[in-house]
């Protein structure tokens, strides 16, 4: 009887030591996919569709990475540009799903293609893989985009652009040639250029609500900061309309020239 209890205590101690070891070795909260089957399926898909650029381990170092002008995201760090969540927070699973679906095409020619050809279930399985790479134990809380106002105040939008000093990086005309654009670096300490806001497509999508969200949450991993609290919701809407109008006008004059 005594021996058995001694043995039990010994085993319990060993178990406690193992737990302790596991916890100190991985001080970061560990994300375990709620759906192991989806994760396993996603890992197969990931190896086939994503690893050439993002690397077998998600570290952004796949064999194709060196041929790209912008380094593929290191997925293990859990930092993402296109989020509906405040700066510093993880994206929602929906954000990741949307980026996989639409790809990321910005004015500087980022090359993440759309994976809309994969089934929805496949794309959700890939979301699980990405969340596991970064040990994302929870989703960030998405911000609520206020409804788009019916009236457009372009003059207010121009004033907000000035007051928030968007021109420091994006230039007076919004084409990405501000004084600070020359010295910008991304999280990898690589050169990055301010996006042109008046040509091409926006990396996080062209819908007005998506543009509004970029101002509000920033693009973590890039130099673009969050402007939450720096202007009212209405002012950010005016800024959105102002830039969309500038871009439409620039596009129209471009077509006239051709």
């Amino acid at each position: 009887m005594k021996l058995a209890s001694l043995l039990f205590t010994g085993l319990a101690l060993i178990f406690a030591a193992l737990v302790q070891f596991a916890l100190t070795k991985h001080a970061v909260a560990q994300y375990v996919s709620p759906d192991p089957q989806a994760l396993a399926h996603g890992q197969e898909l990931y190896a086939r569709e994503c690893s050439a650029c993002h690397g077998a381990e998600g570290e952004g170092d796949g064999p194709g990475a060196k041929y790209l002008s912008q380094r593929p995201r290191n997925l293990t760090l859990g930092v993402f540009k296109i989020r509906s969540t405040p700066t510093g927070e993880f994206p929602t699973a929906q954000d990741l799903f949307d980026s996989i679906t639409h790809g990321l095409a910005g004015s500087n020619g980022a090359q993440m293609p759309s994976f809309a050809s994969l089934s929805e279930a496949d794309r959700w399985a890939l979301v699980e893989v990405v969340r596991t790479f970064a040990w994302m134990d929870k989703e960030g809380a998405p911000v609520t985009v206020p409804p788009r106002p019916e009236t457009v105040n372009l003059e207010l939008g121009r004033q907000v652009y000035e007051r928030l000093q968007c021109a420091a990086c994006h230039g007076d005309e919004g084409d990405g040639d501000g004084a600070s654009s020359l010295t910008l670096k991304d999280d990898d300490r690589r050169r990055i250029f301010a996006a042109s806001l008046v040509s091409g497509s926006y990396k996080g999508g062209d819908a007005p609500e998506e543009v509004w969200t970029r101002f509000y949450t920033g693009l973590d991993g890039s130099p673009m900061p969050s402007y939450a609290g720096r202007a009212s919701h209405e002012e950010l809407w005016a800024l959105t309309e102002y830039l969309l109008t500038l871009r439409a006008e620039a596009g129209a004059s471009q077509e006239e020239k051709q």
Partner: peptide
């Protein structure tokens, strides 16, 4: 050698 953004907040004023 890597670094990851913790937060990035604009303060224009």
């Amino acid at each position: 050698r890597a670094r990851r953004t913790l937060f990035n907040i604009a303060q224009p004023m």
